[in-house]
Design a protein around this nucleic acid. Structure first.
Lengths: 217, 217
DNA sequence: GTCTATAAACAGATAGAC
DNA sequence: GTCTATCTGTTTATAGAC
């Protein structure tokens, strides 16, 4: 990793990063290839050369985002789970919710990534397919495993899957509804301090849900 | 209401409804005024005549959606709250979550409305502003009041506001992540029966969260 | 009010010089 | 690989007949 890039690779990556920023901000259809090339200080022809066209660039953006996410938070979802007590599993759920919330809400560098993903999720297509299989599904699966251990229930059951979707959904909404949330809470910015409030609230909710599902034995 | 519409009004409404359907499906920027006029069996010129242009039509769509929502679920959010015991407030929260979930997830007619809103929420602008002030904010406020009564906490406090955002967010995610959810749950369609499973899960979570916040006195 | 024809700007793709 | 010039189709907006 971090090996020096050739000129062509620099152009390629710059185009991708510029495109992600613009797609995140305005949406795929509202961005022209000219805008992308200008921002990347490249020429329009380079998009056809490197990606075959605008749809190719879109897919390359998705792969770039997936790759980055997989490298940072992926291992936590794919590494096999050690044996855990119910309380340890609960603790791990809370910790993962904290990490996920921070990534999704505040982490500076991932701002564009997150908005890009959010927009693509509303579109049925190759890109959202990729996000689901490479990122959402493993995450959901891992939470289900942990939820199963923490509550004593079957991690493959509908009730567990639905409960996990619910508390993952909490986090999403804090992103989509961010404008309203900031106004309602009278926040001018969303920094570390504000994120901590949100994380605390979400962790508390998550704990409450887990405990409500826990079977006494 | 339901008074006979003049010819011009029919054209106007048909254009709006066609536009909402297409905007919901593909997004504002991916839809051309020609497509809208064709679907509405009108001509391109009529969009300029009735709405001034494409942005005017977008706003008219937003107002149409807001108007419909306000007429159906609005009163429940604006009507002053009668005196309630904590348990009655909890029961009302659960009932409202059920109604909201049904509207947001399955209700046939509102499918386009919901997708239209979802897409517009990601865009900063006049339209999302309208949704926030006319729909999301009153709903959030009402849930906070009920949550305050149900838990004995200050409905204007940050912790209550955040908790309410959380469980509203659960519902949103079931919409955005619908493709993944249906695959993970091995559902082929999302009908009454499936919605009931989801509503039951959400109500259970909501109850758990409320009880976790309830102050003993 | 409705509809058609057309204008002016813009899109993505491409051919070919360097 | 890069960049420019250009092609072809499509976009929204508009002028004017009916």
């Amino acid at each position: 990793m971090d090996k020096p890039l050739s000129g062509a690779e620099i152009t390629r990556v710059t185009l991708i990063e510029s495109a992600i920023g613009l797609f995140a901000e305005r949406g795929y259809d509202a961005v022209s290839t000219r805008d992308i090339a200008d921002l990347a200080a490249a020429n329009i022809g380079s998009i056809a050369y490197h990606f075959g066209g605008k749809p190719g660039l879109r897919l390359a953006c998705a792969q770039h985002v997936i790759g980055n996410i997989a490298a940072t938070v992926g291992p936590a979802f794919l590494r096999p789970l050690p044996p855990l007590t119910p309380d340890q599993a609960l603790e791990m759920i809370e910790r993962m919710m904290g990490v996920f919330t921070n990534f999704w809400m505040v982490s500076e560098g991932s701002q564009s990534f997150v908005n890009f993903i959010l927009r693509e999720m509303l579109v049925k297509g190759e890109v959202s397919e990729l996000f689901y299989s490479a990122w959402m599904k493993p995450m959901h699966k891992r939470f289900c495993e942990l939820f199963g251990i923490a509550t004593g229930r079957d991690p493959a059951s509908h009730e567990v899957k639905i409960a996990v979707f619910s508390f993952i959904g909490q986090v999403f909404h804090f992103r989509v509804g961010q404008p309203l949330i900031m106004r309602r809470l009278e926040w001018d910015e969303l920094g570390e301090r504000e994120a901590e409030h949100i994380v605390n609230g979400l962790v508390k909710n998550t704990r409450a849900i887990v405990l409500a599902y826990r079977l006494q034995d």
